[in-house]
Design a protein around this nucleic acid. Structure first.
Lengths: 170, 170
DNA sequence: CCAATAATCTTAGATATATAAGTTTATTTG
DNA sequence: CAAATAAACTTATATATCTAAGATTATTGG
């Protein structure tokens, strides 16, 4: 069936089903991350929302009025990333950027009605991707995996902080 | 200790330690993936090798002479990505691109001595990152996590193939 | 209160990735 | 065997991300 695309699919599967060296967790995480992004992206594209914009919308649906810096921290990306995304989102009239209380440094971000309305449309798409991705995985294994990922995130955050400390010791 | 950087570190940790919704595995995978990349990148930078180049070197250390297309499949990336990386790697004299047997279409990739010699230098760095990332995680949990990731990769590869099939039905 | 410092946003430029479309070369088939 | 098709590489362009450095505005300490 469908001899057309699927070259990529096949090769990813082949790759991981051959031999997975015991010390290469990083590759699996990377592959999974790319595929997750692609799956969500495909669904979001139907609503003219990019993957990057979605990650900020998601935060704003919970809390409006955060500054760009706060949004960066919440999203776990650097400020220029946030800046670029928010400028584009402003142009698309998903958000507004406003100075509050006469503070001309901080920029607070608010959703437009359009941006707010997307919540009910897009949230199910992300849930769908998670559901598809985890099909056939037991609740117990999901929990274990979540804990492992959490441990990795902790370990690596510390490692990266240590690295950048060394760098600045020149 | 070091009140300088660590803002990022702190926020990533805070973020994940607050509340992890049951249906948001995707975010953890994405965060872990970014941090893994950053950790390795920091180590590779000392040897003037980028993260992208490393992923091709790694394949070539096992098998030289693959075509660009084969390398793309093995690395799990699209051909333009491979093309750009390999051109840069050729310029850095890490690889050579050669036509074989008079076939002027396929380009086969071979390591230079310089590229080959990097294996013993860089491999430990990747192993180091994996070791750091997984510190404190039991062998059993690692296996479970690997299996979950493998299931996710399988599920998503199928999902993406289905999506692109729908797209081409216009 | 004002000069130094810090915070915040912005700009510039790099890397890693993708999709879409173009070019060249091989292969297949009427 | 020549035209059509397919394979492989390349170019163009876009998105998501980063680091480094610049500009502006607040805050703080003498």
């Amino acid at each position: 069936m469908a001899p057309n695309n699927n070259r990529e699919t096949q090769s990813v599967l082949q790759h991981w089903h051959r031999d997975v060296p015991n010390d290469r967790m990083a590759h699996m995480v990377r592959d999974a991350s790319r595929l997750l992004a692609k799956s969500l992206q495909g669904r979001l594209a139907d609503h003219d929302v990019s993957f990057g914009h979605w990650s900020f919308l998601r935060i704003l649906w919970v809390t409006e009025g955060l500054t760009q810096r706060e949004l960066s921290e919440e999203a776990g990306v650097m400020e220029p990333t946030t800046f670029t995304a928010l400028k584009a989102m402003e142009a698309k009239q998903l958000i507004e950027r406003r100075h509050l209380n006469g503070n001309r440094r901080k920029l607070h971000i608010f959703l437009t009605d359009k941006g707010r309305a997307l919540k009910d449309v897009l949230t199910p798409l992300a849930e769908d991707v998670n559901r598809v991705a985890l099909a056939g995985v037991s609740e117990e294994d999901r929990t274990t995996t979540r804990n492992t990922l959490l441990a990795m995130i902790d370990n690596l955050a510390i490692d990266n902080a240590a690295e950048s400390k060394i760098d600045s010791n020149d």
